[in-house]
Amino acid sequence: MTSLQNMLLIVVLITDLTMAANSRLGTCINITAIQGFALGFLPLAIGLEKGMNFELVAIAVIGIALRGILFPYILHRSLLNSGTSRELKPIVGYFLSVAIVLVLIFASLWISIRIDFIAPQLLLLSTVALSTIFAGTFFIVGRRLAIMQILGYILLENGIYCMGLAFVQDIPMIVELGVLFDAIVAVFVMSVATNKIHEEFEHFDIQKLDSLKG
């Protein structure tokens, strides 16, 4: 791993942590945008080390376009529609959230060391991947507002993408496109659903959506 790649990965880790500490939804969307850019440049950094080819460039361009630009744009739009700007009463408080994400990062490290089919020089990559997955699921569980759930889902997808990089080094284009297509559909559906929920109930606090239980 070159220092450029390491730097990008550390940016990803930092974005996970800042997400945990931030209550402003707009800022959180921007943070995922930054994470998207960092992950988008990662194939290019790998290309610089091992020799650039068309596939890596294409993956980078598509990744940046979707993760860095399209998703944040859609989410900002639905945020604007909702008129909400902050998550005021999260289920897990901000200080505790940072602590939990830190614990999750250490847990990821613990697991990554024990995965024996990952090369030692890729330890950082798999740690970042796992902790992003865990952080994503944590945001889904620990936040009330639907926008934050979507962000959690995007983090989850980003983590899976990283994990793929860690396992097979150069992701075939088709796999990467498959993952991204998944994410696009999910983000679209979820934003539409969020807007509908907001229209219907004047809020999108999903904790209040419990009347369907049997």
Binding site: I91, T137, F138, I140, D210, L212, K213, G214
Partner: peptide
């Protein structure tokens, strides 16, 4: 049925 909380967070938490 106590597991069936009605709260999405809990369901995701079960999976996690």
């Amino acid at each position: 049925s106590i597991i069936q909380h009605g709260n999405t967070h809990w369901y995701v938490l079960y999976i996690v």
